[in-house]
Design a protein around this nucleic acid. Sequence first.
DNA 1: GCGTCCTGGTTGAGCACTCAACAACCAAGC
DNA 2: GCTTGGTTGTTGAGTGCTCAACCAGGACGC
Lengths: 164, 164
Amino acid sequence: MAEPRWLSDAEQDAWRTFVTMLGALVDHLDRQLQRDSKMPYTYYEILVVLSHAPNRELRMSELAGLRNSSRSRLSHAVARLEEAGWVERRECPTDKRGSLAVLTDAGFAALAAAAPGHVAAVREVLFDRLTPDQVKSLGEISAIVLEGLDPDKKNLPGSPEPGR
Amino acid sequence: MAEPRWLSDAEQDAWRTFVTMLGALVDHLDRQLQRDSKMPYTYYEILVVLSHAPNRELRMSELAGLRNSSRSRLSHAVARLEEAGWVERRECPTDKRGSLAVLTDAGFAALAAAAPGHVAAVREVLFDRLTPDQVKSLGEISAIVLEGLDPDKKNLPGSPEPGR
DNA sequence: GCGTCCTGGTTGAGCACTCAACAACCAAGC
DNA sequence: GCTTGGTTGTTGAGTGCTCAACCAGGACGC
């Protein structure tokens, strides 16, 4: 086996900073939501996606696709959200195998209550500290990396904000 | 309560792309390590940090600090690594409360075996797709965000590569 | 009709993490 | 010495995830 191509010093620096930032960022946002709104970030995103859907309902697998989540994960998650009263399951009228996840009024209210704090947190750690050029740059870099990871996935789910 | 400052369109775009990329990236790297080396990413990082330490040993809390990890998490993780034979616990000679985590030869070998694949994965999804300017930009942006999250933390643990 | 294969979704075991509680120990004051 | 308070590290319960196994129902062939 050939000697692997290790990272250059500049690459190592960038990688260490990036990966540390990444962990701290995810941790920070997750804790903020958990503390202030009693929900993990992933559940927040499920509620957001549902809030944007027509009738605030989606087939389980559509929801999983939009969330880049496995069916299993989503099934567990929706079970929790159902216990919390934020989502209901209904039978799919056109395919008896299927389930619909429906955002309840209580779920929408919980989302509406959680959103300002979450968006404020995102703004505070990210957008209020970066110049418009840096935001643009971050978007471009993210798109390039994402393209390499997920070549045929073009639909980006989930703005951080709830829908109408 | 005042109307929250929502994100601009450009910010929303950047955020969605960024957050989606982030999830996919973490997932990709974690799966690569789990598949090829039977260890989660966080355990890989513990081994890396230990491999760079003098005598390949560290106090638990130092290790936790370098890894930005809680004591509890580290304690659980080291218990697993000990089962795998990659790390040993020893008493700290100067403080009877303390424990030392010591990287074993088997642990070092496992790390050495895992490193090339991991670094190749990082290179493939990130550095081989970005220009040097973009790498520089990513590093700067990461540093700015990290500064806001972790104001007094200046030590960045963990290059992705094992030490001597 | 009937069989076969695929798809949608759920389930349960196992794993990594968090949080709170705890035991053991050090350090400082008296 | 003793007590008080902070530190170090572990433990156990609970949560969210993955993975593989599974059932139910659709889709296509015959």
